[in-house]
Design a protein around this nucleic acid. Structure first.
Ligand SMILES: [Zn+2]
Ligand SMILES: [Zn+2]
Ligand SMILES: [Zn+2]
Ligand SMILES: [Zn+2]
Lengths: 157, 157
DNA sequence: CTTATAATTGAGAATCTTTCTCAATTGCGC
DNA sequence: GCGCAATTGAGAAAGATTCTCAATTATAAG
């Protein structure tokens, strides 16, 4: 787990994606996975949406982009893309989970409770705290999960 | 949402529960809910375990404590207990969720990835950060979800 | 550009998980 | 104790996820 640099809040929306298809191909091939249109479609739908999407919404949108794609394939694509670190689960307050494009580097999402938009922020406050906890208590912190919920500017009207 | 006091790390295991049955009755009655043996059993199982438990494990243990209890009732009891703030969802790394006794006050769990034990800590680093985010970006932070994963001392042998 | 091969896919079945329905029961205020 | 609304158990129903397997396809090699 990489820690973000010092104090500057670093907000980043994901719409302006940086990977080109060549990068993606390399990422797949590095793990001997095929770069299939179905997998690319799932990722593209998430990128274009800029928000978190439930499996069913994803299935719907993927079928629009690539008719014939099966639901099971959407599940399998998400599993693969998550392993590759390209998408991330978003746990919602009601206990369900959805998916969003994974941020680059160590970031945590701010999820808009109105429009479902996902904005990442980089100031992770947990590096120092984790070390302190380990020193003080002997518990070895291996990982953490953090999400913020709120209202984006557009949704405050 | 209440913020924890200043910098002291405040660890607390939940095994030594502080509510007596009178307190509990009052909590239920304040919302016109019945204090039923099934609901108490679900809570007791969680308290005695001191760890997070999946629905199925809960169902199994509740049936041992109170034979005849139905699975649907376990689901309903968890829903109720969560509304009352007595139990809390724990999101696991694989995307599933389980339940644990809710901590008192504003705390976040450290979940042991070996033995499933849940230890709460009180130094929430997010109050200040949330305000800063709101000031700097205009996004109103309403809530957050934080969990740490690690290895407890016993499990490091 | 073929060809061989292993990975992937679609469709539906199978399996879980969660919610509903409804008659019977039960906690609780009086 | 009585009355009644809240709760429960059991099973059905609905939803979510995983499996199976034959057909397809991306890829590397030639
Ligand atoms: Zn919004
Ligand atoms: Zn972090
Ligand atoms: Zn442990
Ligand atoms: Zn907090």
């Amino acid at each position: 787990m990489r820690w973000a640099g010092a104090g500057v809040i670093n907000l980043k929306t994901k719409s302006g994606g940086t990977q080109n298809s060549g990068d993606l191909k390399a990422i797949f091939h590095a793990k001997r996975l095929k770069c299939t249109p179905q997998r690319l479609a799932v990722l593209k739908v998430l990128k274009e949406s800029g928000a978190y999407l439930s499996i069913n919404m994803l299935d719907k949108k993927v079928k629009e982009m690539l008719p014939g794609t099966g639901l099971a394939t959407v599940y399998r694509a998400l599993e693969t893309l998550e392993e590759l670190g390209l998408v991330a689960k978003v746990h919602l307050e009601d206990g369900c989970h959805s998916y969003a494009v994974a941020p680059e580097g160590h970031m945590h999402p701010i999820v808009c409770t109105e429009c479902n938009k996902v904005i990442d922020f980089a100031e992770c406050p947990l590096g120092e705290l984790s070390e302190k906890l380990t020193q003080d208590t002997g518990i070895v912190i291996q990982n953490h999960f953090l999400q913020l919920f709120g209202k984006c500017r557009e949704c405050q009207a």
